[in-house]
Write a protein that binds this DNA or RNA. Sequence first.
RNA 1: CGGGGUGUAGCGCAGCUUGGUAGCGCGUUUGGUUCGGGACCAAAAGGUCGCGGGUUCAAAUCCCGCCACUCCGACCA
Length: 576
Amino acid sequence: MKIANMVGDRFRETPADCQIASQILMIRGGYMKQVANGIYTLTMPARRIVRKIEQIIREEMDAIDGQEVLFPVVMSADIWHESGRYEKIGSEMARFKDRGGNDMVLGMTHEEASVHLVRGTAKPESAYPFMIYQFQTKFRDEPRARGGLIRVREFTMKDGYSFHTSQEDLEKYYDRAYRAYERIYARCGVPEVIAVKSDSGMMGGSISHEFMLLTDIGEDTIVTCPECGYRSNMEAADCVVENESIGEQPLTKVATPEQKTIEEVSAFLGVKPENTCKAVVYQENLTDKYIIVFIRGDLEVNETKLRNFVGCEIHPATEITAESGIVKGFIGPVNLNAKARVLFDKSIEGADNMVIGANEEGYHCKGFKPGRDIKVDSYCDVAKTYAGAICPCCGKKTINISRGIEVGNIFQLGTKYSHSMGLQFQSRDGSLKDVIMGCYGIGLGRLCASVCEVRHDDYGPIWPITIAPWQVHLCAMRPDKPEVKEAADKLYETLQKMGVEVLYDDRAVSAGVMFSDADLLGVPVRVVVSPKTLGRGAVEVSARDKSFREDAALEAAPERIAAIVKEMLDKVNNID
RNA sequence: CGGGGUGUAGCGCAGCUUGGUAGCGCGUUUGGUUCGGGACCAAAAGGUCGCGGGUUCAAAUCCCGCCACUCCGACCA
């Protein structure tokens, strides 16, 4: 490819409205252009990167016996009614009517389509397991797209669905998929991607993992333990705390006029926030019924865990009515006369001498001890864990909090879709049973942008050679000199014949422009042919990541360059 | 959905307060001089000032409505 004719302008200014490195560099490098909010056109370099990522994934999916298929983007609403998700999913799913007035949807995921494909007459147990996967455009009308390709509305995703006759078999396959994913990220040049325990969200199912690339611009909060390797998304992380007795005291009422927040109350009474017990009020989305969570004063409620615990959508209480009996700012578990569901978080278990609200304007109580002053049937775990908290796995106070981008996920779906949509198998004893499913997703564009996010310098991306748009960037410096033009043209042709992917810059531009453009395109191997190098009878070969720079004799250059490319490829691919 | 911001040439922006018929930098084109990290000189092309309405002799500028983009939050396989 000649850079002179390539569509997609590179430029110097930072584009307006760009926040993160990958977005800035990929826009500046002419990899893509925004068409609408969260919707991009990819140009050749980005398309080539995504294609290479796709091929790596394809090879790894095929290696675990995946069968590539292609589901449609547009689906009839019928199958979404069957699974119940037509009603359950909100406006992030795009819906429309065809000319016949039938309800249609744009696929945001393809569980329904996959079950639709494989159901029919119940197949024998021996026909299982199998996995089908595809690369397909998804449309999700995100309320807020941002960060270039990190969070978009239209994107290409690899989604796979596996079908099993037992939980054990699913788990066995899930483990294979897990290892395939690790290979995929390593081969894409980001072996540091880690798997974390995750919340299953609207996908349903029980066990699930997200693959995370840790970076500060990540939208997810990741909980890790350096001691034992425990890793979890904050949404799914257990919060373990240990409360020590600070001296049991009788429950006594104290006046705390105008002191409503934990900061105010603890400062006013001279106690630490962790020796208070606060109430956080939520409402069920559909009924507006109140839910009061009693939690240690220094902690926050993890709304995902709370949602899962109560089993319905919830939102923080916006307005508290007088009839509810809730005294805002002074809520406490003792003598609470409120129309609300009351939950006790584990974080107050075992504590004593806590400050609580007195359920009376202007008063709190000291000396509260759960279990003594009020009967607690059971404690739930709905608190957000925090840096320095106790690791739920090894028990040490080692919890770390960091940020990560989700670059893939795997779910054990169970029978959610097979059951609702009627996908059964015939077991050896002749009975019909629901098929057990797993699903496995990777967003290609997001992975591309994420790699850029962690593999770049001030001048542009530094693409790992396995996914780089080209392997070699050939610069003919001073192509107005016939000897340069001739040597570079020949090298270009020879390398291509040898199967090396070359981007060729033979424009009559200054060295600065040429190098800046090369930096923005991030091709791992750079070859410069110039009057200077030809004077030495050589071409200059260097790495985008500055790891080496050498002269290669002109006649031997093609072989040398091809050898360097091969060496770099092997280094990434030999991961076992 | 709530709260801010912005919309003027391919890109980045000024002009708007105080109305007078559009400008700067980058990029692009042509010619010339340069030549290993975004060169220089000269000439040139390129704009429904987001859209619609209103006020006015006159609107990029003032008023009303709408749209789009964007940031923070809510939301999010």
